[in-house]
Every structure is written in C-alpha cells, then in structure tokens.
C-alpha cells in the first residue's frame, strides 16, 4: 500500500504518521512537501498529519487548506481515494471543505494532552472495518482546538447519515458530557464524509501503535486500512 503524508510548515506529527504507516505497518510511505502539486503516482491513502501548520494563523488549518498539494488531495478524495486527517489534519480537511464543521477552542481554553477513550460508531468504513460497533479504544489527544462545531440542522443531518465515526466515552463505553474533554458537540471525536472515504479525527491513532508508546489502541484503524487494501 502506498501512503502519502503531506508536510506543511509547522506540521509536527508527520514523523509519527510516517513511523506508524512506514515502520510499524510496513507500507510504502512518503512525505510530500506542501508545495508539490501532485501526490506520488499510485497513492492509495493520504494521511494529513497533525501539528500547527502555518502557526495556526487566521484559523487552524485555514492556510494549509490552500496549499498546492491540497488541490491534488481534493481531486484524489473526489475520485474516491482514502484520506485520513488527524488533529491539525482534521482541521485542514474541514477548512478545505472536504469535511463539514469547524474545530473551535476547547471549552476549557486549555491545551489538553492525555489519553481518552473512543467509542466506534461506524465499523463499516475502510478505516474501521477491523473494529466492532460500540468497541472502545484508548488513544491520546493533544490539542487546544478540538471542540467540534456545526449548526444544529447540519449536526442533525450528520448524525442522521451516520457521519459520526468516533465519540468520546468512558472506558466502559458510556457517553455523556463528563467524558468529552474539549466541549465537542455530541461528544464527537471523529467524522466521515457521506461517501465514507474521508475521515477526520482529533485523537492520534498513530501515537498508539506500539507497546513502547504506552498502548496500541490506535492499531485497529491501521489494521482496518490494511484489510481494506488486502481485499481491494
């Protein structure tokens, strides 16, 4: 499987993504500078990494969304290619219009870095097929702007079409405001587009793929992708 990791000025989780996809999963993984106008030939997954692209100037992800490489990521996504955006990568996909909504400042105003539990709401996606509906997994978050916001009508549509992929929860899977670290609407941690090929999430699955990292809760997403490509 060939993976492209777009790198923007201020990306700082690009090496985490390269390590998880390249070293841990053994995929042909390439970093692609944001000034490039084309993804590598044969790219099957684009992993938009976390960080602070362009210093979060104007709004998180707003400037990166306009980079030359993002025009090709958009074409790739429109052709059905798989795109995974994590943290700042999620913010970039929202700003690029590939996913609905926006990520606002955490309700606490604080940068939060800790392990959270996520409940799988969609186990039928190319990113989640190795997981089970309702399964709980632990992954770290590290963000100051992860408070997902969408107007009420669109939020209802998102829920109705099964656009919520992951929700923050207790270790036993219970959901509720008490388990939402950042004030996110409906406890949303990750969403998917209508077609099911573009997924954005604030937590970092690529930072939980080896025991030495403190846990392997994120592996399920990579194993799902491996399964998707094995059967493609």
């Amino acid at each position: 499987m060939r993976v492209a990791v777009p790198v923007f000025p201020g990306s700082n989780c690009d090496h985490d993504a390269l390590h998880a996809c390249g070293t841990v999963m053994g995929w042909d993984t390439r970093a692609v500078w944001h000034q490039e106008s084309r993804l590598p030939e044969g790219t099957e997954l684009v992993f938009v990494p976390g960080g602070f692209s362009y210093g979060d100037y104007l709004r998180c992800g707003a400037i990166a969304a306009l980079s030359p490489i993002m025009a090709d990521v958009r074409r790739f996504a429109e052709a059905g290619g798989l795109v995974l955006g994590v943290c700042n990568g999620f913010q970039i996909l929202c700003e690029a219009g590939l996913l609905p909504g926006a990520l606002l400042r955490n309700a606490s105003l604080r940068f939060i870095h800790r392990t959270v539990h996520l409940r799988v709401e969609r186990a039928d996606l190319p990113f989640t097929s190795a997981l089970k509906p309702g399964q709980v997994f632990a992954v770290p978050i590290a963000h100051a702007e992860g408070n997902f916001e969408l107007d009420d009508a669109e939020l209802a549509d998102l829920e109705a079409r099964g656009g919520v992929a992951f929700r923050y929860c207790a270790p036993d899977g219970r959901t509720g405001e008490a388990f939402v670290p950042n004030g996110s609407s409906h406890g949303i941690a990750g969403i998917v587009n209508t077609r099911g090929n573009v997924l954005g999430m604030m937590p970092h699955p690529e930072r939980a793929v080896e025991p030495a990292m403190g846990g392997v809760g994120g592996l399920g997403i990579f194993e799902s992708l491996a399964r998707t490509f094995a059967t493609a």
Binding site: L104, A107, G183
Partner: peptide, 10 residues
Amino acid sequence: PGILDPQGKA
C-alpha cells in the same frame, strides 16, 4: 450568535 466563546467567557 449561537457559538460558545470560551475566550469571551474567560
């Protein structure tokens, strides 16, 4: 109007 502004609140 409907958007929570935690900065404003602080």
